[in-house]
C-alpha cells in the first residue's frame, strides 16, 4: 500500500453558490502519474484550483500528506493552463522560470546565483535552455508549456498539479513532457494532470480520476478506465444536478446546513 499524497474529503465547490463539484471523495497515491479526465465543464480546472487554494470550497477539505495546503505549500507546485496569462508580457523565458523562486528568495531581495543555477537546470530539463533570453511573446504553444513546467520544476515540490499541459502541443513536446513526468514519478513525485485525450490515457497514467460534476471513478487506470465508467462520465450532463444548482444560486441557499 503506497502513501496517500492527496486526500479529498467531501469536497463541494461552488461559483456564486451554484455547486459545480458535488461531494468529491478521493485518495490519490504518492509517486504516481494521475490523470483527471472528464468532458468540458466537468469541473476539472475547478478541482485543481480548489486544491491549490485559489478557490474556497463551499465545504469539505483537501489534505496533502495529511496536512492542509497552507502548512505544506512548498511541497505543492502548480502549472496553470497556458491561456491563463498574457504572453505579450515584457519578460524573457529566464525571468518567468525564476518566478518559481521568488517566494523562497523573499521580500526585497533579488534572486541569487543558486536560484539562477536552478533555473538553468530546470530549463535544460525541458530542453529550453537555448531559448532562455527569448521574449515570451516569441514562443510557440509547446514552448510556452515547457516554460511553465520549468517554472514549477524549480520549486522542488513533491506534488505537481498541471492543468492541461498536453493541450495544443506538438508530438515531440508531448513526448518530452511525458518522459519528464515519468522521471518525476520515478523520483517519488506525484504528478496530477488534467487531460483531454482519451486515446492516450492508458499509456500516460498509472491512476485516473473520472469527473463529471461528481466523481465517477478514481483508481488504477486498468481497473477504472472501462466502458461503463466512460459512459457515466461522458454520457451527457446531469440535468437534475444542474437544476438544483440553479435553485441554490437563485435563492442564495447554502449547499450545506452549517
Amino acid at each position: 500500500m503506497t502513501k496517500t499524497a492527496v486526500e479529498i474529503h467531501d469536497l463541494v465547490v461552488a461559483y456564486n453558490r451554484k455547486p459545480v463539484l458535488w461531494n468529491i471523495d478521493a485518495h490519490l497515491p504518492a509517486g504516481k502519474i494521475i490523470g483527471i479526465i472528464g468532458p468540458n465543464g466537468a469541473g476539472k480546472s475547478t478541482l485543481i484550483k480548489a486544491m491549490m487554494g485559489l478557490l474556497k470550497p463551499a465545504s469539505g477539505k483537501i489534505l496533502f500528506f495529511d496536512n492542509p495546503l497552507d502548512e505544506v505549500r512548498e511541497r505543492v507546485a502548480y502549472v496553470p493552463q497556458r491561456e491563463s496569462v498574457d504572453w505579450q508580457f515584457p519578460v524573457t523565458v529566464f525571468d518567468v522560470v525564476l518566478m518559481g523562486r521568488y517566494k523562497k528568495v523573499g521580500l526585497f531581495k533579488n534572486p541569487g546565483k543558486s536560484d539562477k543555477e536552478k533555473a538553468k537546470q530546470a530549463l535544460e530539463k525541458v530542453d529550453m535552455y537555448q531559448f532562455r533570453d527569448r521574449q515570451i511573446s516569441q514562443l510557440s504553444g509547446g514552448q510556452q508549456q515547457r516554460v511553465f513546467i520549468a517554472r514549477a520544476l524549480i520549486q522542488d515540490a513533491d506534488i505537481y498539479l498541471m492543468d492541461e499541459p498536453f493541450a495544443g502541443v506538438d508530438a515531440s513536446t508531448e513526448k518530452a513532457i511525458l518522459k519528464l513526468m515519468k522521471e518525476m514519478g520515478e523520483q517519488g513525485k506525484t504528478v496530477i494532470v488534467v487531460h483531454h485525450d482519451l486515446q492516450t490515457v492508458m499509456d500516460f497514467f498509472d491512476w485516473v480520476m473520472m469527473l463529471n460534476q461528481r466523481l465517477v471513478a478514481c483508481g488504477k487506470t486498468q481497473d477504472v478506465f472501462i466502458e461503463k465508467n466512460l459512459n457515466d462520465t461522458y454520457g451527457g450532463k446531469l440535468t437534475l444536478l444542474n437544476e438544483v444548482g440553479q435553485i441554490l444560486s437563485k435563492n442564495q441557499m447554502p449547499q450545506r446546513e452549517k
Partner: peptide
C-alpha cells in the same frame, strides 16, 4: 524598486504567485 519582483509576478500571473505562497 524594493518590490519590483513582487509587482512583476503579481502582474504577470497572480494565481501562480498565490499558489507559490506569496
Amino acid at each position: 524598486l524594493l518590490m519590483k519582483k513582487e509587482f512583476t509576478i503579481v502582474s504577470f500571473d497572480e494565481d501562480f504567485a498565490h499558489t507559490s505562497g506569496m
